[in-house]
Design a protein around this nucleic acid. Structure first.
Lengths: 341, 341
DNA sequence: CTGAAAGCGCTAACAA
DNA sequence: TTGTTAGCGCTTTCAG
């Protein structure tokens, strides 16, 4: 009985290519990895064989042999408020696009904060954390294991990890300053979930701007939400019912700001006539309404891109590379939802 | 010089565990893979060693050895209109969640339809295609390569591949029938991108319902869009300007329907007084407006789940398993945006 | 019930 | 410039 080499139906391996091309597997490997030191003649023979056999190297064998992995896991906390947002989608999209550019495989990992089992760190070459809320432990674990990691959307001071965040407090300040420059003094703030750094910093920027302008901070003008439209609506209702309602409101996200505008319209109020509104995000939805929303543009795509770039840098440089803390500027986009008093 | 066993800093391997536990690596492997035939005594010794060493098996070695991979790639066409949607996010979310349940690694792949290089089929254990628009070639390639695949959101008749879709035409019919039952005869349709099967089927359902009720189909009542809010707004403008405007409109997506409602309000029109509206999706945003949107609920999450389940079935059963074509029912959700004539 | 040994497909010294 | 060979870490017969 002919001792056939294993299952003949098996997919082609580097050995088959080598045989067909009449060279050693090493040479094939060199061609695949573009090692240069291969004679043009052999090179083309290999290439031809590869094409004929439709050969694709086994990534597992490669990874096992090299110890390197080009898999990047994007860790998103399965945090309802956040995940239903424009933010999450933009982030995923931008990350996906750039990973493709860098030839990285993007592993998506939605995680419950209370989850015990973490992903197998041996399976990934790098970790991209979307925020650190509820995943701090995982970040620490990754750092200890020496897996290149970067945290996005959270300026992590107290951990030796690269991060790229947005200047939330600065953005908030510019929004409120703008309102003040328009003559507003009674300015409310509908904040997002202050458990997130982004929301907390926006709140801080709001109070800072007020203080610097000698406007007293009224607690009743600060409404905290979970970033959902539902809670934004409730907050707006509260605002409108106040005996001394604000003349302007800075809202922590565009989608919430849109909800406030919607409610205002329903109640027959005029925007910006009766209330000036500034959002945060620069979500395209803000453009389609009757009154284009003035907002603070947040470079979400850029943030994701910088994150992937930084991660790629970490992954391709030797162990112990210096971490980077990047903070991206925001930009006030003036449209139609505010008026001068 | 002591011939140290390679880099001592290297992560622990099965060998270290075996040594520490005082058994062979085979036994360790058995314990890891829950092979049962291991004496309790050895078993606990191994477990203890695993814990002490914080051992995590190398997925690459496992995959190389077994030839099996639990990596699932979710292929989403980078199709602007689609990707900015509620749809994409829901899909990713549901897929991500269920993959975790099945212990599958989710690889996200956003693809340009014109891309040549495809992902390395050897690297994945299964493929989940979100729609087949622009990726038909890839689907065929996967089928030929024998890689388990399922197409979501598109009922693929002409290819031997599993798919799970939604009853778009049925859903559209029920929406239009409902409008008709309310006494409407002048019913318009703002369709999505008819290059997608979903939009095409909704349009078909619309015309079918009309025909079955002996209402003539007016071409000028059919406005085609790309699913974007911008185009929805233009379509609505067109509608409102007509000499004989419709009394009701069936819109192919909730986000577009919301845009139509917004425009109506801006123009001082009353919903549902002046115009009845039915959407499609059951996007939660439809609930927050002043008038809750009547819509056709689309089991997006269920669709994604069924997709993953089916893929998992394919991946765990032997080659050549029978493909399944699944079609999920929709449900009309009556809320406040329609009135009887 | 356990262990020795032969791979899985590829890369990377080391020689030639 | 090319080939030989020894692993990478794990699974899986096959003996014991």
């Amino acid at each position: 009985m002919t001792h056939t080499k294993k299952t003949p139906s098996a997919t082609k391996s580097i050995v088959d290519v080598a045989r067909l091309a009449g060279v050693s597997i090493t040479t094939v490997s060199r061609v695949i990895n573009k090692i240069g030191t291969v004679k043009e003649k052999n090179r083309s023979k290999v290439l031809r064989a590869v094409k004929e056999l439709k050969f694709q190297p086994s990534v597992f064998a490669q990874r096992l042999a090299t110890g390197r992995s080009n898999v990047v896991a994007l860790i998103i906390p399965r945090y309802e408020g956040v995940f239903y947002s424009f933010y999450a989608l933009e982030l995923i999209r931008a990350t996906g696009n750039l990973c493709e550019v860098f030839k990285l495989d993007l592993l998506l990992h939605l995680t419950d904060s209370h989850i015990q089992s973490f992903l197998n760190l041996k399976g990934v070459g790098g970790l991209l954390f979307s925020d650190i809320i509820g995943t701090r432990y995982q970040v620490e674990e990754a750092i200890n294991a020496g897996v290149p990691s970067v945290v996005i959307n959270n300026y992590v001071k107290d951990l030796p990890v690269s991060c790229v965040a947005v200047d939330n407090s600065g953005g908030a300040e510019s929004a409120v300053n703008y309102l003040i420059s328009l003559g507003h003094k009674k300015i409310a703030h509908i904040s997002g979930d202050v458990a997130t750094q982004a929301a907390a910093m926006r709140l801080e920027g709001y109070t800072e701007a007020l203080k610097k302008n000698n406007i007293s901070v009224r607690e009743d003008y600060i409404l905290k939400t979970d970033y959902s439209r539902g809670q934004a609506r409730s907050a707006a209702e509260t605002l409108f019912k106040m005996s001394e309602p604000p003349t302007a409101v800075f809202v922590a996200s565009d989608s919430m700001a849109l909800e406030v505008m919607a409610l205002a319209r329903e109640m027959g109020k005029n925007i910006p006539g009766d209330l000036s509104i500034v959002g945060f995000d620069d979500n395209p939805s803000g453009l389609y309404g009757p009154v284009a929303l003035t907002t603070v543009r947040q470079p979400l795509v850029k943030m994701a891109e910088e994150g992937v770039k930084e991660l790629n840098r970490l992954m391709t440089s030797k162990k112990g590379a210096q971490v980077k803390k990047i903070i991206l500027p925001t930009e006030l986009v003036v449209r139609e939802s505010c008026r001068a008093l």
